[in-house]
Computed example of a mutant assay.
Amino acid sequence: MHSPESLGIPEAALTADGALWTAREIAQQPRMLERTHAMVAGLATQIAAFVDPVTGNPAARVILTGAGTSSYIGECLAPLLDRQLAARVDAVATTDIVSAPRLYLDPAQPLLLISFGRSGNSPESVAAVELAETLVADVRHLVVTCNADGALGKVGVRQAMTLLLPEETHDVSFAMTSSFSCMMYATLAALSGPDTLGFRVGAIARATARVIDDANTQTHALALTGFDRVAWLGSGLFKGLAREAALKLGELTNGGVATCFESPMGFRHGPKTFVTARTLVCVFVSNDPLTRRYDLDLLDELRGDGAADRVIEITAGAPHGDAADAITVPGLAQAGDVDLLWPYVAVAQLFAFHASRAMGIRPDTPNAQGTVNRVVQGVRLHPMVP
C-alpha cells in the first residue's frame, strides 16, 4: 500500500524529521480557504450587523491587530480595506498598543478592534483588548481566531463577536501557515462581504493548490543551494507579505538564514547593501500595471548588478526574465493583487520549510533551545501610568 505523503514526502519520513505538521498545514491551505469562506458566508448577516456601524462611519476607525505573524495579516489588508471602507483602517500590532496605548487608542473615536490569534492566548492580545475596552468610549471587538478555547474570545467586553475558523487551522506547528492564510481570508471576506469573494475563492484556492504542487520542487532546489541571506521584496499589499515571508524563514531556520524585507523601490535606499554573493532576492510582482513596472525595474537592476547569487520573481504574469528565475502562479494573471496574497505566501512557506530541513532543523519545533515558543512566554504586563 502506498504510504501517505505531504508535499511529496512520505509522512513517515516527515514524522521522523519533526516536519509532519508543518508540511500538512502548508498543504491543507486550499481546502481550508474554501471552508473558511463557507463559514464567513454563513455568518454574513450577523457580521454586517456587528461591523457596519463602525466600518460605515467616516469618523470611526478600524484597527487590525495581532502579534508577530498575526500582526502581518493587518499589514497586508489595511491599505486595501482603508480604500474600501468609510472608516479609517490601520494595522497596529498588539505589542505596540500594549507598550504605548495612548499613542494608538483615541478615547473619543468609535473603534472596531479586530484581533487575530491562532491560539488566542498571547498575553499582549488579551491586554490590547482590555486596554481598548478601558480607554475607548465606543469600541467593538471582532475576534478572529483558530482556537475555540483561547483566552482572547473570553475577555469580558461590552460588544464582541468571534469568528472561529475551522479547527484544522489551529496549526500544531511552531510556525503559523494555514492559520495566517485563513485568518487573513476570513477578515477580508467579513469586511468586504463574502459575496464579493464568492466567485473568486475557487480561483484563489486552485491557484494556491497549483503553486503548492508546482513550486514545491523549485523551492526545494533553491533551499538546497544554501543561501545565507534572503531578501523578500513586495510593493503595496505585498510589503506586509514580504515581512511575513522573512519571519517565516527566520523562524523555521531558527535564525540560521539572515532575512530582510522591503518594498522594491525602498530597497534601493540603503537596504540593498544587504545583498552579497550568497544572497537570494525574491520579489512578489504586482499585477497592477503601474506597480508592476516599478517591480520589474528593480528586477532588471538587481540582475544587472550581478551582486546577488539569484534573483527570483514570484509572478502571476509572464516571467520578466529567464523562466528558471521565476515562480509562476497560474490562473490569476488578471486578478487583483489581493487575490495573489495566498498563492504568494505559499511560495514563501515552502521555501522556509525546505530550508529548515536542508539545515537539519525540525520544522515543527525549530527552536530547540526554547528561547522562543509557539505561544509567547515571559511577557510582563505593566499598569498604565496615570
Rank of each mutant, 00 (worst) to 15 (best):
V129A: 10
E130T: 08
E130P: 01
E130L: 07
A132G: 12
E133W: 01
E133P: 00
T134V: 00
L135E: 03
A137S: 13
V139S: 11
V139G: 04
H141R: 07
L142W: 04
V144P: 05
V144Y: 00
T145Q: 08
N147V: 03
N147S: 13
A148W: 04
D149T: 14
A151Q: 14
L152W: 06
L152N: 11
L152D: 10
V155E: 12
G156C: 00
Q159G: 01
A160N: 06
M161N: 03
T162Y: 06
T162C: 06
P166F: 05
T169H: 10
T169Y: 10
H170L: 15
H170Y: 08
V172S: 03
V172W: 02
S173R: 09
F174L: 14
F174V: 05
A175N: 08
A175T: 04
A175V: 01
M176D: 03
M176R: 12
M176V: 03
T177H: 05
S178M: 08
S179H: 09
S179L: 10
S179E: 04
F180N: 06
F180M: 02
S181E: 08
M183P: 06
M184S: 13
Y185F: 15
Y185G: 03
A186T: 09
A189C: 12
A189D: 08
A190S: 14
A190W: 01
S192F: 09
S192I: 00
G193E: 11
G193Q: 12
P194S: 13
P194W: 15
P194V: 10
D195L: 08
T196Q: 14
T196Y: 05
L197S: 09
L197K: 02
G198W: 08
F199L: 13
F199A: 15
V201F: 08
V201P: 09
V201S: 11
G202W: 01
A203M: 11
I204N: 04
A205M: 10
A205E: 09
A205G: 06
